[in-house]
Design a protein around this nucleic acid. Structure first.
Length: 112
DNA sequence: AAGGTGACAGTTT
DNA sequence: TAAACTGCCACCT
């Protein structure tokens, strides 16, 4: 595949917009894109984001539970947690601590 | 062209 | 209460 749908590009753009020390959820991104795309598509996009440039902070994207559901897709399972910790995000038991506190909703940032 | 897959989310049993 | 099922929709074989 030469190019990807704009949908993927949108996902990457939103993910890259996630500020330092913040995390987002697949559902939030999907909702920002229209809620119809389906959260699964966001995760699927992340699958390709691994090879995207510039770098897509996929580690800042977790499920609505704050769980690092995609950690296994990284080089190492600890890598995602490590990256999050570098962002100042506390992670324990593959789960983002203070998730409600560090949660960043794209629609919240671009709306209101 | 058609079927199967998936880094989710919400509902039901 | 936890576990399982379905719905979602684009991508891949």
């Amino acid at each position: 595949m030469a190019i990807r749908s704009d949908f993927f590009k949108d996902v990457y753009d939103v993910v890259r917009l996630i500020p330092y020390g913040r995390v987002s959820s697949y559902g939030a991104i999907a909702a920002y894109l229209g809620a119809k795309t389906g959260a699964r598509m966001v995760g699927y996009a992340m699958n390709a984001a691994h090879a995207e440039v510039p770098y897509v902070p996929a580690h800042r994207v977790v499920n609505r539970n704050g769980m690092l559901s995609g950690k296994r897709h990284f080089g190492s399972e600890n890598e995602m947690q490590l990256l999050l910790e570098q962002d100042g995000i506390l992670v324990a038991d593959d789960q983002v601590q203070n998730f409600n506190k560090v949660f960043w909703d794209p629609s919240l940032h671009l709306t209101l």
